[in-house]
Amino acid sequence: MSNPTPLIDPALEDTLAAVESRLASLGEALRARDAAAIDSHATELHRALARAVDHFTHAARSGSVPPTLRRRLARASGQVAAQRESLARATAALDRAIEVLMPRDVPGLYSSIGGSDRSGLRGGSVQA
């Protein structure tokens, strides 16, 4: 006789499906570079992940998380990590581009009193 397939709690399935759906929506917004949609979908994903953690933690305590849902949750976790890494790389590239276009204070330029750094030197004489 074969092992029966464990029953999947509909709440766990719905919670995980919501996370997967939010991940897909966020991925589309990222590809479209739609800042408003990215912000909205990221917020929705955050809420869905919080609900999923609560549901799965409760289910794990009672020992009733089927392997199929565990694999799907692990896959979703990997997608979140990949999107986070992608955003981090994009942010770093943007920061570098901004730095090139709008550099901070440029050292080594002459000040209004002559040389590049005349702090503390007044009156033209140097004391040893």
Rank of each mutant, 00 (worst) to 15 (best):
M1V: 03
S2P: 12
P6S: 08
P6W: 09
L7N: 03
L7S: 07
I8V: 13
D9I: 01
P10K: 08
A11I: 12
A11M: 14
E13N: 13
E13Y: 13
D14A: 15
T15H: 09
L16K: 03
V19W: 01
R22W: 01
L23N: 08
L23C: 04
L23T: 04
A24Q: 14
S25F: 00
S25C: 07
G27H: 01
G27Y: 11
E28V: 14
E28F: 12
A29Q: 03
A29L: 04
A29S: 13
A32D: 07
R33A: 01
R33W: 04
D34V: 02
D34K: 08
A36N: 06
A36G: 03
A36Q: 06
I38D: 00
S40K: 11
H41L: 05
H41I: 02
T43A: 15
E44Y: 06
A48S: 07
L49E: 02
A50M: 01
R51A: 04
V53G: 06
D54T: 12
D54K: 07
D54E: 10
H55A: 11
F56M: 04
F56N: 01
F56I: 04
H58T: 06
A59L: 01
A60P: 01
A60M: 05
A60W: 05
G63N: 06
V65F: 07
P67F: 06
L69N: 12
R71Y: 09
A74T: 15
R75P: 02
R75G: 14
S77N: 09
Q79C: 09
V80Q: 02
V80M: 04
V80L: 15
Q83P: 03
Q83V: 03
E85K: 10
L87C: 03
A88R: 15
R89C: 05
A90G: 14
A90L: 15
T91K: 15
T91D: 10
L94W: 12
D95N: 13
D95A: 15
A97K: 07
I98T: 13
I98D: 11
E99C: 10
E99P: 10
E99L: 12
E99I: 06
E99A: 15
V100D: 09
L101T: 13
L101R: 15
M102W: 08
P107V: 14
P107H: 05
S112D: 12
I113C: 02
G115I: 03
G115T: 11
S116D: 11
R118L: 14
G120I: 04
L121Q: 07
R122A: 13
R122K: 12
G124A: 11
V126Q: 10
A128K: 13
